[in-house]
């Protein structure tokens, strides 16, 4: 080895050392953070299910790891580059997750499309089958129309019979219901008749006060006592006709006014029976007035039942007062 060569070598070596010293280079030693970084990258690359979806992001990360692995970096620059490279790996991972989700979205959408397609094929097939069935049915119907006419008629008759029976059963049930109702009314009437009979004689003696007249908000009210009717009866006694003469005169004197006739009973007996009796009695009075020449269209006859007493139902005298027919000359 010549002298000169030795000098050159020494100079070069000194230069390199100076340069290294000038920017405080890291000694080329194993760096734990760098090792971890490489491990991270390797791990991600090995997970091909993720890494193969994002080749660009992987190569960015590889480049960043190489930049961090360069020799001669300052402490600050080394940790900065390790930091950057670690973030690059994180970014690649996030992008891979995104790509994975997007792929699954595509698969879900494809499945949805496939399902809808299958459904529409089924729909078409169903419609076709139904059309065929309808056609076959109509053909069969045409062919067998003649042959089944008798049967069809029989069926028609059966239907009619069934309908008739149903109607009959309905009518029977209705009739039974009415009968029961009527029987109840009859019993009630008979009971009342017996009761009223005991009062009848007395009532007859008091017929003088059969007519009462008073002014009310509704109009002039003429109250006809129960003496107009025989006990339990709903037709006027023959002699009552004469006594209605006063009423006829009264309503004839006010030809513009409407007439309302209300039948009332006491509280003895069922309210349904009382309603019926009061209505029939009101109607009997109406008919009598019409017979005497009062315009029927002026008159409204209603049964009020037992709900509008004018005296106490506790005493016989009160009950007698409550059994009445009111003739009202209605105010406008």
């Amino acid at each position: 080895m010549s002298r000169m060569q030795t000098t050159v070598r020494i100079t070069l070596t000194a230069l390199i050392i100076a340069a290294l010293a000038a920017c405080a280079v890291q000694p080329p030693r194993e760096n734990a953070a760098l090792r971890n970084l490489n491990n991270d990258l390797e791990e991600f690359r090995a997970n091909t299910e993720l890494s193969e979806r994002v080749p660009l992001a992987v190569s960015d990360a590889e480049r960043a790891v190489r930049a961090a692995s360069a020799e001669g970096l300052s402490e600050a620059e080394l940790s900065h580059r390790i930091n950057l490279a670690a973030k690059r790996i994180e970014i690649a991972r996030a992008e891979a997750f995104r790509a994975q989700a997007r792929e699954q979205i595509d698969a879900v959408e494809a499945e949805r499309t496939e399902l809808l397609l299958r459904a529409s094929r089924l729909e078409v097939e169903q419609a076709r089958r139904e059309a065929e069935r309808a056609l076959m049915q109509s053909q069969a119907a045409t062919e067998e129309a003649e042959r089944t006419r008798l049967e069809a008629m029989t069926a028609e008759e059966l239907r009619e019979e069934a309908a008739r029976r149903e109607q009959q059963a309905r009518e029977e049930a209705e009739a039974a219901r009415r009968l029961a109702e009527a029987q109840a009314s009859e019993i009630e009437l008979a009971r009342r008749e017996a009761e009223l009979a005991t009062e009848a004689a007395e009532s007859m003696r008091r017929r003088l006060d059969y007519l009462e007249l008073r002014e009310t908000d509704r109009g002039v009210v003429v109250t006809l006592g129960d003496v107009l009717f025989a006990s339990g009866e709903t037709t006027l006694q023959p002699e009552a006709r004469n006594q209605l003469g006063d009423v006829v005169k009264l309503v004839e004197g006010e030809p513009e006014k409407q007439i309302r006739i209300e039948g009332h009973t006491d509280s003895t007996g069922s309210s349904a029976a009382n309603m019926r009796i009061s209505r029939l009695r009101a109607e009997a009075v109406r008919d009598a007035l019409v017979e005497e020449g009062i315009d029927a269209s002026r008159i409204q006859a209603v049964g009020m039942g037992e709900d509008f007493p004018i005296a106490s139902n506790e005493s016989a005298e009160g009950r007698r007062k409550n059994r009445r027919v009111d003739v009202i000359l209605l105010n406008d």
């Binding site: 973030k87 994180e90 970014i91 996030a94 992008e95 997750f97 995104r98 989700a101 997007r102 699954q104 979205i105 879900v108």
Partner: peptide, 16 residues
């Protein structure tokens, strides 16, 4: 950039 990548991944997962 990391925030963006993670946001996009979250959006894709939500869409999925």
């Amino acid at each position: 950039q990391l925030a963006l990548a993670r946001t996009r991944a979250a959006l894709a997962r939500a869409e999925l």
